[in-house]
């Protein structure tokens, strides 16, 4: 098998005494959308956050096992450098209380020394990737005045602006209406040609619509991981079948 973009090997994670990820091993390929599904509290968001070391912010979190990015242990490089390559979009749209332009430019200003025109070019490119450029005539307007869907797409633009190679999305549509959801999903499908996308979702239909691969997690364990169609049509594990049939979750 070719080198994977992201890889977890026998990953255990504890929050204090709580064992939230149990021996998770997963290999996520590039230029595909991988969905993580499972009932609430199964650890899918927690697993996602392992990939860009978001748990570093929580002093209670303790990690065992290996997480690899492009074959390298992520804990060997600096967290900030890793996060520039492994971008993240959060469950709730969280633009900064600043202008639209400043939001998108934030990551660029941190990592790169750009001239004003270069910066402007990159910001506009990111916004057009997120299909926002036509909707937002005034980039100086406050990001807080946008609709929820626009805000979330702005957050995606902000994440892709620094040209990461992986995009982690933590239930990006859970706070959005169906139309905005559709727009974000379309965006995800377009993004996969350039990025490795990992998306956590509680919406099985969404997983079906956007993902190439799907992982099913339950109680902190990775139960099953295969191509999306195969998992949905003929899951090998009984838990997966029960979950997909809606017996629980």
């Amino acid at each position: 098998m070719s080198q994977m973009k992201l890889e977890a090997k026998g990953l255990d994670l504890f929050f204090g005494a709580k064992h939230v990820l149990k021996k998770v091993s997963i290999r996520i390929p590039d230029k595909q959308v991988t969905a993580l599904i499972g009932p609430s509290g199964c650890g899918k968001s927690t697993l996602l956050r392992c990939f860009n070391r978001m748990h570093d912010l929580n002093p209670m979190a303790k990690l065992k096992g290996d997480v690899l990015f492009e074959g390298q242990d992520i804990h060997l490089s600096k967290a900030a450098e890793l996060r520039q390559k492994v971008g993240m979009v959060f469950q709730k749209p969280n633009p900064f209380p600043q202008s639209i332009f400043d939001n998108v430019a934030y990551g660029l200003r941190l990592s790169q020394k750009l001239t004003k025109s270069e910066l402007e070019y990159k910001v506009k490119a990111a916004l057009s990737q997120a299909h926002l450029i036509d909707e937002l005539p005034d980039l100086k307007a406050s990001a807080m005045e946008l609709s929820g869907g626009q805000q979330q797409r702005l957050c995606i633009a902000r994440a892709v602006a620094v040209s990461p190679s992986v995009l982690l999305m933590d239930e990006p549509c859970s706070a959005l209406d169906p139309i905005s959801t559709r727009k974000v999903e379309e965006l995800v499908l377009q993004l996969k040609s350039d990025y490795c996308v990992v998306i956590v979702t509680h919406n099985m239909q969404q997983a079906k619509r956007v993902s190439d691969l799907t992982a099913f997690m339950y109680m902190g364990e990775l139960i099953e991981f295969s191509e999306t169609r195969q998992l949905f049509d003929k899951a090998s594990h009984e838990l997966t079948r029960n979950y997909l049939e809606g017996s629980f979750g």
Partner: peptide, 15 residues
């Protein structure tokens, strides 16, 4: 200040 702002900032590679 909501933690989500900080999270977003860290997520973009800020220290």
């Amino acid at each position: 200040v909501p933690f989500s702002f900080k999270e977003a900032s860290y997520g973009l590679g800020a220290g």
